[in-house]
């Protein structure tokens, strides 16, 4: 199941979301009681989402891999302190964001990009096909160029704005969930999102409609 589908399912409704949170809490309690294998289930459940968020914040796949692992290690080391005041999902996202922010601050003078490949899906009827007029090589070159420009534009955003647009547009979280994770109000989330989109639009002006 793709990340987007998983997320869609997760956010389908509040009762389902609550059931997910309860299931996570059960796993956390098992870990706290010494069942270390239960933590593997939590890793497998969240690793792709955490990786995706960190990757989009850093635009570097090696850093993203390293920071995602660091996130889970920190969570594992601190799990006895988790008391369920927030959901495990919110908690681990916060750890991931803090870990990434610390990394970016430490390495702000030496930044390198390395991109993930774009997963090929059924493109029929999509904008990409119409642009590339059927030539595979031309399409790949166009996709790579757009990917590079988009990532560059993402990295020009401030960390706060990049976080909000990543969580909303890529991870498909709701305003409320983003507000819980980032510790600000829903109004602030909406405002940051609006500003981030405006900025992206401005940076990518010559490539967009």
């Amino acid at each position: 199941m793709s990340v987007a589908k998983t997320v869609g399912k997760l956010l389908a409704g509040t009762p389902e979301r609550k059931a997910e949170a309860d299931a996570d809490l059960d796993l956390v309690q098992r870990v706290q009681e010494g069942d270390v294998a239960a933590f593997d289930l939590l890793i497998h459940k969240y690793r792709e989402r955490i990786y995706s968020v960190v990757y989009n914040l850093t635009s570097n796949r090696e850093d993203a891999s390293d920071l995602t692992q660091e996130t889970f290690i920190k969570a594992f080391q601190s799990i006895n302190r988790f008391r369920g005041a927030s959901s495990f999902f919110t908690w681990i996202y916060r750890i991931a964001l803090n870990t990434t922010l610390t990394h970016l601050r430490k390495n702000r003078l030496r930044r390198f990009f390395s991109f993930e490949r774009i997963v090929e899906e059924d493109h029929s009827g999509e904008w990409l096909d119409s642009l590339a007029s059927g030539q595979q090589t031309e399409k790949s070159a166009l996709v790579n160029e757009l990917q590079e420009k988009l990532n560059e534009a993402f990295q020009k955003l401030s960390y706060k704005h990049r976080t909000v647009i990543t969580l909303f547009e890529i991870d498909r979280l709701s305003h409320k969930e983003i507000a819980e994770i980032t510790g600000c109000s829903e109004g602030t989330v909406r405002s940051r999102l609006h500003y981030a989109k405006q900025q992206l639009q401005s940076y990518l002006q010559e490539y967009l409609k």
Binding site: V3, A4, E48, Y51, S52, Y55, N56, R61, S65, F115, E116, R117, I118, V119, E121, E126, W127, L128, S130, L131, E138, A141, L142, V143, E145, L146, Q147, K149, L150, N151, F154, E169, I170, K197, L200, Q201, L204, E206, Y207, L208, K209
Partner: peptide
């Protein structure tokens, strides 16, 4: 931009570009 379509009407929207970004995923 060598592959950039000269006709602005065929350029992607920001939403479409963000869709592209969602597809950046590591292999299994």
């Amino acid at each position: 931009m060598p592959n950039h379509p000269s006709d602005p009407t065929t350029r992607p929207t920001l939403e479409q570009l963000l869709q592209l970004k969602r597809r950046e995923q590591p292999p299994q």
